[in-house]
């Protein structure tokens, strides 16, 4: 490496509808590392950006939810492949933002990639595990199957900027939902880089929309938005979490509440983050000749 070479820095933007726009508001905010040194100016997403993201997520829902589970699994696996190639960059951003050693940052990145692979493998198993054949007391063929809820707003964890993010986004996508994500406010850079990974991994534009900014500012608009079907409050706590849950009641959104403290994201996640954003459809058809 040439020590004299001046590096080409990246402009960190939003990932919205498959493109990388700045915030329509023109706002940015300063992102620093754990010691307070300048890292970048991140786009500071506005209410309008959030609404645009919902439009994009809704438009993408039909194709993503209608894809075969096998295809969805392959696309998500592809994301992990591309993440692997970007692991060093992710590790650098996680280390700087979360104040981790290089070794621990790399471990978090590895765990995030493995977590993504885990969810990629779920797409074509959910129906077998969560669905059923229903032995109804009559001459009917009855079965139930899981289906995605729709557009899910994800308020990503504040502390764990990549492993936490992947741990809340993966389950939403595996089930066939589309997502509007608000990243960690303090450590938004891994989220933007994940957007670049998604854009180059055959994930259709609009399936994931990543907004950097403040969940306390944009969250309320998403919680009451009539075209958002569910909300994951992972990145919130206290009065904000309660306010968002209350707003979400007005449109009967599915709400995945935040734990009292941000959990250890390395733990086995089980199905607990997938089932809240899956509906069950029961079908009846008569049997007869």
């Amino acid at each position: 490496m040439n020590a004299d070479r001046l590096t080409v820095r990246k402009t960190y933007k939003l990932y919205l509808g498959g493109a990388f726009p700045r915030s329509e508001s023109g706002r940015t905010y300063e992102v620093t590392d754990a010691k307070g040194h300048f890292l970048a100016n991140a786009a500071w997403a506005s209410r309008k950006d959030a609404r645009d993201a919902v439009v994009a997520a809704r438009a993408a829902f039909g194709k993503w939810s209608g894809a075969t589970a096998y295809n969805r699994g392959q696309v998500l696996y592809r994301v992990a492949e591309v993440m692997e190639g970007r692991a060093a960059q992710f590790a650098e951003e996680v280390a700087a933002g979360e104040g981790l050693s290089a070794t621990r940052a790399r471990a978090a990145v590895d765990a995030a990639i493995d977590r993504w692979v885990w969810y990629a493998g779920w797409t074509d198993k959910l129906a077998a595990v969560l669905g059923s054949s229903n032995p109804v007391a009559g001459p009917y063929f009855g079965f139930s199957m899981p289906e995605p809820t729709g557009v899910v707003a994800v308020l990503a964890p504040q502390r764990s900027s990549l492993l936490g993010l992947v741990s809340v986004l993966g389950p939403v996508l595996a089930g066939g939902n589309t997502a509007v994500v608000i990243s960690s406010k303090q450590c938004p850079l891994p989220a933007v880089t994940l957007g670049e990974v998604l854009a180059t991994s055959d994930v259709p534009g609009g399936v994931v929309n990543l907004l950097t900014g403040d969940a306390a500012e944009i969250g309320p608009w998403l919680a009451e938005h009539a075209d958002v079907d569910g909300i994951d409050l992972a990145g919130t706590s206290g009065p904000l979490a309660m306010e968002l849950e209350r707003s979400a009641a007005g449109t009967v959104k599915r709400v995945l509440r935040a734990a009292a403290e941000e959990p250890d994201w390395t733990a086995d996640p089980g199905l607990a983050r997938m089932t809240p954003f899956l509906e069950t459809k029961s079908v009846w058809h008569p049997m007869g000749v």
Binding site: V136, T280, S282, V283
Partner: peptide, 21 residues
């Protein structure tokens, strides 16, 4: 949450019932 094909308003304890949206 429930689709009845060539029938309607059938219920059974083995068949999960509930809504979308």
């Amino acid at each position: 949450g429930v689709v009845w094909a060539n029938t309607f308003n059938e219920f059974d304890p083995t068949s999960p019932f509930g809504g979308y949206k």
